[in-house]
Design a protein around this nucleic acid. Sequence first.
RNA 1: GGCACGAUAGCCAAGUGGUAAGGCAAGGGUCUGCAAAACCCUUAUUCGGGGGUUCGAUUCCCCCUCGUGCCU
Length: 304
Amino acid sequence: MTLKYMPPKKKVVVILGPTASGKSDLAIALARKYNGEIISADSRQVYLGMDIGTGKVSKRERRLVPHHLLDVASPKTSYTVHQFQRDARKTIRAIQRRGKLPILCGGTGFWIEAVLSDVALPRVKPDKRLRAKLARLTTAQLYAQLKKLDPARARTIDKHNPARLIRALEIVMTTHKPMPPLTGKTNYDSLILGIQVPTKALEKRIAARLAKHLKQGMIAEVKRLRAQGVSAKRLIDLGLEYRYLMYFLQGKISKKRLTEKLGTAIRRYAKRQMTWFHGMERRDIRIRWITTAREAEKTIIDFI
RNA sequence: GGCACGAUAGCCAAGUGGUAAGGCAAGGGUCUGCAAAACCCUUAUUCGGGGGUUCGAUUCCCCCUCGUGCCU
């Protein structure tokens, strides 16, 4: 047993990359080597019972290295960025207090950025009734209202996106104040490692992973969630595997169509993830792109 | 062999005698409490090939090729 490295306070390592790029394995390897603990930054792995479809690490792997923010919510409820921001920051602090290295690992760019950057999420809770009311309006009507109540926000918002418009209105209507602009500051001394996999190779990995998950009983997993009372609508909303598996169970698509449609949906998702990461770079968040574990180790040594 | 119908982007597909809807895929992008979600942009100088009619054809006529169905 060699002496474990004691990282200085505040340092955080982040591992991000598209789905199926091998983030979890890298995180585990680095955590074992550098005395780290892993914080999952995945918007679907927070839910209990969603294991195969989300590609969650196994129980055995979790015994190897402590993992945080997995299975922290019921899929019947929704766990949002706001909660994640709070919980992840708290967890980072706790890990640092233990003298260990926090490794934030996941594919949900928005969540990672919410933790690292100073995105001051307005403290306005989602208001179901208000949302339902607003949902009846057209995007043009929503936009017109927002323009009246918070013209500055209206200028930057995507005026065709009902979800965004409704949230923006929800904020002004309860705070009666314009939304504060983003500062763009970061909170941690962080090393952000981005796993880069060539498109063709990634597509292969996605297909192989999907086949594996199907074999592992992904269909049964969705049935189980249904049996536990998670609504079909909710599962469809959860996206990807849960959405298409639900369509399959509803008889809307055949097994063959399922793998086809789901395959392309996952590929498109991977693309959107990359778009987010590129956006982070544009927002001045430096990402060190790596292709191998060796490269990761080299950069991490310099960082520490 | 005969008859009928069809042939439009990577796929599905609408369409008109006046210069090519839409959907999917693909590519690019957005993102202030649902972010695996939601949303935006781009993508056929060209309608199987060749003739003809016409000011003008993808649209009408003829021939050819291919496909599908039916008949013998």
